[in-house]
Computed example of a mutant assay.
Amino acid sequence: MLLVQEKTATETVVAAVENYYEEFLIVLPRIALAIFIVVAGILIAQVITNLFKRRFLNKAEDPLMARFLAQALKIILSLIAIMVALDVAGLSGIATGILTAAGGAAIILGFAFQDIGKNFLAGIILAFNRPFNINDTIMVDTHFGKVKALNFRYTHVKTTDGRDIYIPNSDVLTKPVENYTADGFYRVDFTVGIGYEDDIEAAKTIIQQILDSNKDIVHNDTHENFVIESELAASTVNLKVLFWVHTIDYRKASRVLRGQVIQQIKVALDTNGFNLPADVKEIKLYRNVEDIPLRLRKDPRDYLEDNNN
Rank of each mutant, 00 (worst) to 15 (best):
L77D: 07
S78H: 01
S78C: 12
S78I: 05
I80E: 01
M83K: 00
L86V: 05
L86T: 02
D87K: 10
G90F: 01
I94C: 00
A95N: 04
A95R: 09
T96S: 15
I98C: 01
L99F: 04
L99E: 02
T100R: 07
G103N: 05
G103S: 10
G104R: 04
G104P: 07
A105K: 11
A106F: 11
I107H: 09
I108C: 11
F111T: 09
Q114A: 13
Q114H: 14
D115K: 15
G117H: 08
G117D: 04
K118Q: 14
K118W: 09
N119A: 04
N119K: 07
L121T: 05
A122W: 06
G123R: 08
I124E: 07
I124L: 15
A127Y: 00
A127C: 08
A127T: 02
P131V: 08
F132L: 06
I138R: 01
M139E: 15
M139P: 00
G145S: 09
L150K: 02
T155C: 12
H156Q: 12
V157S: 03
K158G: 02
K158S: 11
T159N: 07
D161I: 09
R163C: 07
R163P: 00
Y166V: 11
P168A: 10
D171V: 06
D171Y: 02
L173C: 13
T174N: 15
A182C: 00
A182W: 00
G184E: 08
F185L: 06
F185W: 03
Y186D: 14
Y186N: 14
V188C: 12
F190D: 14
F190S: 10
F190M: 13
T191V: 14
G193R: 08
I194G: 04
Y196N: 09
E197L: 09
E201G: 03
A202P: 08
A202F: 05
A203T: 03
K204A: 07
T205E: 15
I206S: 06
Q208G: 00
I210Q: 07
I210H: 03
N214R: 11
H219V: 03
H219G: 01
